[in-house]
């Protein structure tokens, strides 16, 4: 059943997202051609129009990313908690199959969007030669991130990056689920819940930084100028611990969000 939920969700949301990404990429290509025709943005005689085109293209890329994220979240709300929920919630599937089936679609599209944004940005700023070099080096960089001798900070950052689409997806799903508990204005309630959770996580991030910062200051104050290598190691370690703490925090939040979403679907569905 999980496969079937995924299949139908994929077929439903993909046509529009594919079209949006193609349009976004076309905008990036057109802007790049325009920028080249105007002499580029790095040259001393670059025109305001070229800069404007670059900004417009960056905004377009950002819009596609934001749209993809909120569209997949909105689709979940619409399919599960709005009118279409009358069909979705009477299908013989479990809450887990529903969350994972739809979640996988969203996660895959978010991952595609991240890669797409990198490619679109490269089209915008890199020359053919630089782009070729980038792609030649990319597998080595990725391999070095996860090889045994890789710096811990790189590994933590890599894992965080891989898990980010999952964290983002479950956050928007749980917002829709909690929004469903309200009697009216459920979509608005879901948006408010989303913002609330976002701020909650930001506060948690700040708390982590506050805990790490005095520790870092104490250690660095003991170092002399001659200990520059040791200082770099200390800073790296401190940043790595902060990143790890943030990652653990995100995992804990996501697990809680997942079970909350599951609980609402199983016991508190409210399709009045």
């Amino acid at each position: 059943m999980l496969k079937k939920v995924f299949k139908h969700e994929w077929h439903t949301i993909s046509p529009l997202l594919l079209a949006i990404h193609i349009i976004g990429l076309s905008v990036a290509v057109i802007c790049r051609i325009g920028i080249n025709l105007m002499g580029g943005v790095q040259s001393s005689n670059s025109s305001i129009m070229a800069v404007f085109l670059l900004i417009a293209a960056i905004i377009a890329i950002g819009c596609v990313m934001v749209f993809t994220y909120f569209y997949t979240g909105y689709r979940f709300y619409k399919r599960v908690f709005a009118q279409q929920g009358y069909l979705t919630n009477t299908l013989p599937v479990t809450a887990d199959q529903l969350i994972w089936g739809k979640g996988f679609t969203g996660i895959i599209w978010l991952a595609i969007t991240f890669l797409w944004a990198i490619i679109a940005s490269m089209i915008l700023v890199l020359s053919y030669r630089d782009a070729g070099e980038f792609f030649r080096e990319l597998p080595n960089v990725l391999a070095s991130l996860f090889c045994p001798g890789a710096p811990a900070i790189a590994r933590t950052a890599g894992i965080s990056l891989l898990l980010t689409p999952f964290f983002m997806m479950i956050q928007i799903y749980v917002s829709a689920a909690v929004g469903n508990l309200f009697t009216g204005h459920k979509l608005l309630a879901a948006a408010v819940v989303y913002l609330g959770l976002y701020f909650l996580q930001q506060i948690a991030g700040i708390v982590i930084m506050c805990i790490a910062a005095p520790h870092l200051r104490t250690i660095t104050s003991r170092l002399t100028i001659d200990d520059s290598t040791a200082a770099v190691t200390v800073v790296y370690d401190a940043v790595n611990y902060s990143l790890m703490a943030a990652l653990i925090f995100s995992i804990v939040f996501s697990v809680v969000f997942y079970f909350l979403c599951r609980y609402v679907l199983n016991h508190r569905l409210n399709l009045e």
Binding site: T12, Q84, G85, Y86, T90, P92
Partner: peptide, 20 residues
Amino acid sequence: LETKKIVSYLPERSYLDENQ
């Protein structure tokens, strides 16, 4: 899950996605 396999439900409103 078990009851959903044997119950067929017609709601009072449409659940069909207009774009499909």
